[in-house]
Write a protein that binds this DNA or RNA. Structure first.
Lengths: 240, 240
DNA sequence: TGTACATCAGTGAACGCGCGTTCACTGATGTAC
DNA sequence: TGTACATCAGTGAACGCGCGTTCACTGATGTAC
């Protein structure tokens, strides 16, 4: 139990050799996470069971309990990895080519939607109600974002996922700030960031679970729609 | 079985006396739907079980099978009722007071978000992956919306829910058309409607399951954020 | 270097649970004559 | 109006299932002397 906690509190993705490395399985924790993500991708969040994860890792049903306190701890760890994936994808797409902060903002939006379409089950996992993230400072309180996490109180094992989520969203907000500083967008920072985020998040969820459903189809369609939505967001509904 | 199908194919909400009325229970189908919505509201979509629904209706476990072929048929019927509720709420808020089509559009958006916040579980039910709605005609094909449902193929019991959903979304699109005809908004109709919908849908889902989570808090906060988001959408990110 | 010991990631069996669904049935309701 | 019959919405027991989790255990690994 104490060893499991120690392993669980290590930052995921860390590649330093750990004390437990090379034990019986080698790195069962990592193998379980890998199997979990694959299982979610194949059968959806509801299809995720500890037993099947253990099965895929080639290990007994009880083995995962040496690495995760219970099922929700596994889910939280998967969400953490998902957010890290999402953030990496967004950074790559935003910083990959040159351009103004506005260009980057646009690419962030399209990348967000594309990630959702390409990893539908993982994306859904990130926004499961039970992983509800800390409340961001309200748009009325102009200030640094993410300084007051308070949504995972009493569940320290969810905090890692929550912080991974916040880091992702900070990427969007920082880009809005940059665009505003460059005079490329006008308005109140948090309101702009919120609106931008709502637009692409709405498109992503409508594509996955709504009447626009294109799950399984090429990401190309998602790109087209994301371009449209971000264009309308940029220019506004009102005539200019 | 044949009776169950007959009952299930009746338009829900119809108040005409049915042949089955006044039998043993009176109107078990309606009671099951009522219990189902209450259960979803209390325990979430995952907490919805046929057994508990039957329990709450004061009836044996097997009784619901005379009214719904299986669990998914119940879920579909619940979604249909949910969409009807949502549409009624939106109509009320949009047509309640006078105003330009743009005013109505704004009120629709705020009403959408408020419905989600006030009925979180039901709202989530409407956008469950397994109820994925028919694909709307793409924004590239300018034309009448909803003429080609194709997402519930092979599941006729889902069609009712799908059509209830489409009727709801048509409300939004029609309002965009009216605003455009009045010269109050500029751009391509479907792109405008999609962007508007994405904005409020994104806000709604972020409020329910994201870092803005306010479930249980007063709808007032949702109104404030919805006002902000729709304002940004109206004016656009770019300086004017 | 060897030996005794502590650690701990695994095993395998078992627990209790609630689920969806099926089945033969019962008995109230409606109908035909 | 009365009787015989058909209909069908209910019942209650049972099915098989996969789940999360616990438990005493085993045996490989690492450590202290």
């Amino acid at each position: 139990m104490s060893s499991s906690r120690a392993a669980a509190s290590l930052p995921a993705g860390t590649r330093q050799p750990r004390r437990g490395d090379g034990y019986h399985h080698g790195d069962l924790r990592r193998a379980l996470l890998h199997a979990g993500l694959a299982l979610v991708a194949e059968r959806g969040v509801d299809g995720l069971t500890l037993r099947e994860v253990a099965r895929r890792a080639g290990v007994s049903r009880a083995a995962p309990y040496h690495h995760f306190a219970d099922k929700s701890a596994l889910v939280a760890a998967l969400a953490e990895r998902g957010f890290e994936e999402l953030e990496a994808a967004l950074r790559a797409v935003a910083e990959g080519e040159p351009g103004t902060p506005l260009d980057r903002l646009r690419r962030l939006g399209v990348g967000y939607v594309r990630y959702a379409v390409e990893h539908p089950a993982t994306f859904r996992l990130l926004f499961r109600p039970e992983l509800r993230l800390p409340v961001l400072p309200g748009p009325t309180a102009e200030g640094s974002a993410g300084s007051a996490p308070g949504g995972t109180a009493g569940r320290p094992d969810l905090d890692a996922a929550a912080h991974a989520g916040l880091a992702t969203f900070r990427l969007l907000r920082d880009t809005v700030v940059a665009a505003r500083n460059a005079g490329l967008v006008a308005g109140e920072t948090d309101a702009l960031a919120l609106a931008a985020w709502c637009s692409v998040h709405g498109l992503a969820t409508l594509l996955l679970d709504g009447p626009l459903a294109v799950e399984g189809s090429p990401a190309q369609q998602a790109d087209v729609l994301a371009d449209q939505v971000t264009a309308v967001l940029a220019h506004g509904l009102l005539p200019r």
